[in-house]
């Protein structure tokens, strides 16, 4: 039915060495993206390289923890942890390899007010998992946007 094992994660052609730029130098998302690019076969740029090197830039990361259901006394019961990242990827010459766009992921979790004991630790676990899923989602977008078929369209 046409399905085949995936060949390599596609990267924009003639990308050259890539660096990951995040607003916060040690952002975990930045590290995850750098690992992902390395696994996809990209060549990591020298740590201090600033000019004429391709850049995957994490422009902004934002979190929101909003109640999505309340009990009859108005107390929040379920929350949705939402994580949105704006990123863009530019070639060494500054041209856009992947246009600037936003990716948003969300995880719902139960946090009844009566026993909100373990909720802080569940939220920390979800933050780590959302970061890994976000790195995968961004790399999927890089892959899709640099597919030869896409280029042909």
């Amino acid at each position: 039915c046409g399905f085949h094992l995936r060949n390599a994660l596609n990267l924009p052609e003639d990308l050259g060495p890539v660096r990951v730029l995040a607003s916060d130098p040690y952002s975990p998302l930045g590290e995850l993206l750098a690992d992902g690019l390395k696994r996809a076969g990209a060549e990591a740029a020298a740590a201090d390289a600033t000019a004429d090197v391709a850049t995957l830039q994490v422009i902004s990361e934002q979190w929101a923890d909003t109640p999505i259901s309340h009990d009859q006394f108005g107390r929040a019961q379920e929350f949705s942890l939402r994580y949105a990242v704006i990123f863009s990827m530019r070639r060494a010459d500054g041209s856009a390899a992947v246009p600037q766009q936003a990716v948003e992921l969300a995880r719902d979790y139960l946090a009844p007010a009566v026993d909100s004991i373990g909720k802080a630790s569940e939220r920390e676990l979800l933050v780590r998992e959302l970061r890994r899923d976000m790195a995968a989602a961004i790399l999927r977008r890089v892959d899709a946007a640099s597919k030869p078929a896409a280029a042909a369209q």
């Binding site: 995880r107 719902d108 979790y109 004991i117 373990g118 998992e129």
Partner: peptide, 22 residues
């Protein structure tokens, strides 16, 4: 039981090595 609670059963829970937070 200081800071532990059963994790919300979800897709993420399928791949975790513990059923509890904390």
């Amino acid at each position: 039981q200081f800071d532990t609670q059963p994790l919300t059963f979800s897709w993420g829970q399928l791949f975790r090595d513990n059923r509890y937070s904390g």
